[in-house]
Amino acid sequence: MPRPRRSGPRAPWYGKGMLLGLKVTAVEFLRTVFPHRGGLKILKPNPTAGAVTVQYPREKESPTPRARGVIALHEGNCTACMLCARSCPDWCIYIEGHKEQAPPRRPGGKPRQVNALDRFDIDYALCMYCGICVEVCPFEALFWTPEYEYSEPRIADLLHDKSRLGEWMETVPPFEAYEPGSEMKVPKVPPT
């Protein structure tokens, strides 16, 4: 059953709205082709500077320091406590470790028992990039880095082992300072 079509207020004369739309696109086009402002430079066309599109393989965007790109592992800090593996929502972290005797810190002391890390794998094919593992780590062994170029032709290669995760450590940016009014302390990235 068709309902009656109501009529609403329209533009004063037909076609005005369409011409206004054409003006918007024309202004946008001119802004893209002539992006320079001020003086005679305005006549110099430079569409590559005015365009919004980033020509990806040649130019690269730089993500913010907080961007969750890939997780870096600081192996020296990890004690294989399994907190990250247990709190992962899809259980994509695989950890194996063993206890071993380490030489004493000071000469004449008792030998220490330390947890050595045998295996630390993150399966990026499963990872949801939620950051819970980085947050729960009590020993500052996991860090986010904004790197994003690690796609692989084979899905099995997305399983990063501890040496590969350790390589990401060099790309971890320093933590940003906070906005005034914040009471938080800025953490530090440990040296690799």
């Binding site: 907080r66 961007a67 969750r68 990039y129 939620c130 950051g131 940003e176 906005e179 914040s182």
Partner: peptide, 28 residues
């Protein structure tokens, strides 16, 4: 949104009792 939460589409920034992190400098 990415500059403060770290994620463009899936921020996962809200925590029970507050937020995960404070605003970075210059964000406002």
């Amino acid at each position: 949104i990415e500059a403060v939460t770290g994620g463009r589409f899936h921020p996962n920034f809200d925590r029970i009792g507050g937020l995960k992190d404070d605003l970075p400098k210059g964000w406002i």
